[in-house]
């Protein structure tokens, strides 16, 4: 039996691979141009990606800085300076329940005192008309700030229609911790005044005895 030698098999395989290669058509004439165009397109895409990544990073940094920046519009309540009379405007928004005309309640109820109009902090989950004050910024005391909020609360309560149930009012007050404090302060001062009024003046009584 005559076996095919390895060399003959190698030659057969070489010829077979050459036949296979001959079946593959040559590259297109503009092959190099197409490759260069692809390379340029990829470079431009990479450049655009780097630019957008840089812009996104800058925007994110600005956003984070804005989030953690101390709020400059908050009143520094520790500054013990002279209060300045400021104007308080009536609520700009329309009352939700059509409870009546806009009333500059702050002026009505706290006319005897000087106060500072401070830009109030936004209240939580309140759909009632909001008293917006002119931000006449000045140096104010803690007492003036609370007086303002007292006036604000009283104005709110005056603006409310009787049809608003007390439960709704309770919800309103309990939604905001500051309002709760103010209500407690109001009630406390009212109670104290009432107690003081009822309490006998020992000196006077003694003199009138």
């Amino acid at each position: 039996m005559n076996k095919t030698t390895d060399k003959e098999q190698d030659r057969a395989l070489q010829a077979a691979m050459q036949r296979r290669a001959a079946q593959v058509p040559p590259l297109a004439d503009d092959f190099a141009e197409r490759v260069m165009a692809k390379m340029n397109a990829r470079r431009q895409r990479a450049r655009r990606y780097r630019l957008s990544a840089a812009l996104t990073g800058i925007a994110a940094a600005v956003f984070v800085a804005f989030l953690f920046w101390p709020e400059s519009h908050e009143m520094p309540i520790t500054q013990p300076e002279q209060p300045v009379i400021a104007e308080v405007t009536s609520p700009k928004t329309e009352p939700k329940e059509n409870v009546g005309a806009e009333v500059p309640a702050a002026q009505t109820h706290v006319s005897a005192r000087k106060h500072v109009a401070v830009e109030p902090k936004p209240q939580h989950a309140i759909h009632e008309p909001v008293l917006v004050a002119e931000p006449v910024l000045a140096k104010a005391t803690r007492t003036d700030s609370f007086d303002y909020y007292l006036a604000h609360l009283e104005a709110e309560m005056d603006a409310l229609d009787d049809s608003v149930s007390s439960a709704q009012l309770e919800k309103l007050i309990s939604a905001d911790a500051r309002l709760r404090q103010l209500v407690n302060r109001i009630v406390g001062s009212e109670v104290e005044q009432a107690l003081n009024a009822a309490k006998p003046d020992s000196t006077t009584d003694y003199l009138n005895f």
Binding site: N2, K3, T4, Q9, A16
Partner: peptide
Amino acid sequence: AVLWAQDDEEQANEAERLSLLD
């Protein structure tokens, strides 16, 4: 060590062998 069997391939002509290999 031995690969293709020549006796089987000799039964096909040259063109057929090339075609079979391809």
